[in-house]
């Protein structure tokens, strides 16, 4: 892992941009520190007590100079803000076709599952060059998924999905840290992210036992928890059908609020419908759904269910 003594590897598409902003910041720091240092040292040497420098009518205040060192830092600050905000915005808007991997953080390990059903602990294998989006949730406290080489970090919150995307641009093994203090073994909650050539990645994907893709495992869970009883075709209890619902707009009524507003059925909505079913009820249905907390349906299984619902959504878009 040969690298510059001051920089980690630049292994993701936007690592260079972040380093550029950082270097600009360090440049400004170096400039102003040097400016202050030189000014102070010259004044100390020239005007130390006992020297015969000319000292009368030194100015006590001058509006022009004050405005000078208010204006220039202001311009630099706004420039730095704008540039870093643009790079930050790019970090927060992943490409639509990004490859999706689920991350479930729990006290002191990262559990990752690929759409093809592959599962890893504290390890993440990614192919070179393909943008990757991580959909992350925590089962207990706040963690933080941090890969220094990709200059990417995002806290993993309990009860809410947060996401992070990057596009690996260099093959190799890089550190994966938990950056948010999460308890006793926070220090050992570490792992590695391995960026591989696409061919090696396919071979790795094929190897090892595979219980089928995430969607298929989701379908098995769908049967195991008898979701079909209400949401399936038998409909012995009226419940909103799930075919083609993912990504679409769902009319939702909220008790006490006459207007029905539409929300998009994204991951958050499905997660909340399972964990807190009474929060947003589909128009025209009774709030009958039982709540499934983490003991009945772990976060990893819930993500599999979402993958399954997403898959049946894609097949029948007739609705």
């Amino acid at each position: 892992m040969a690298h510059l003594p001051f920089f980690p590897e630049q292994a993701s598409s936007h690592a260079k941009d972040v380093d550029a902003v950082f270097l600009a910041g360090m440049g400004i720091l170096a400039f102003f520190t040097a400016l202050i240092l030189i000014l102070i040292v010259t004044f100390l040497v020239r005007y130390r007590r006992g020297t015969t420098a000319e000292r009368d009518n030194a100015p006590n205040t001058s509006l022009r100079i004050e405005l000078l060192w208010i204006g220039i830092p202001l311009i630099i600050s706004i420039g730095m803000f704008a540039w870093s905000a643009v790079v930050y915005y790019r970090l927060y808007s992943p490409p639509a076709d990004a490859y999706l991997v689920d991350v479930v953080a729990k006290q002191w390990m990262f559990y990752l599952q690929h759409p093809e059903g592959k599962r890893e602990i504290n390890e993440l294998h990614v192919p070179l060059g393909r943008p990757l989006r991580l959909r992350m949730i925590s089962q207990d406290v706040i963690h933080s998924f941090y890969v220094p080489a990709f200059r990417a970090k995002q806290d993993v919150l309990p009860g809410r999905y947060t996401s992070l995307w990057f596009q690996p641009t260099r093959v190799g093994q890089y550190h994966l840290f938990c950056a948010e203090y999460c308890g006793t073994n926070h220090a050992v909650m570490r792992g590695t992210v391995e960026v591989m050539e696409p061919a090696d990645y396919e071979r790795w994907l094929g190897s090892g036992s595979s219980e089928g893709s995430l969607a298929r495992q989701g379908e098995q869970l769908f049967q195991k928890h008898h979701c079909g009883g209400c949401h399936g075709p038998s409909q012995n209890v009226p419940a909103p059908p799930l075919q083609g619902v993912y990504g679409g707009r769902v009319p939702v009524t909220r008790e006490g609020d006459p207007s029905t507003n539409f929300i998009t059925a994204d991951d958050r909505y499905i997660h909340d419908s399972v964990r807190l079913p009474k929060k947003e009820i589909v128009a025209g249905f009774e709030p009958m759904m039982p709540t499934y907390d983490q003991t009945e349906l772990s976060e990893a299984d819930l993500l599999k269910l979402i993958a399954y619902i997403k898959s049946i959504g894609a097949e029948e878009t007739s609705k």
Binding site: Y92, S93, P94, L164, W165
Partner: peptide, 10 residues
Amino acid sequence: VSRWPALPGK
């Protein structure tokens, strides 16, 4: 308030 605009990433 500004947390819900459904950016694909969020």
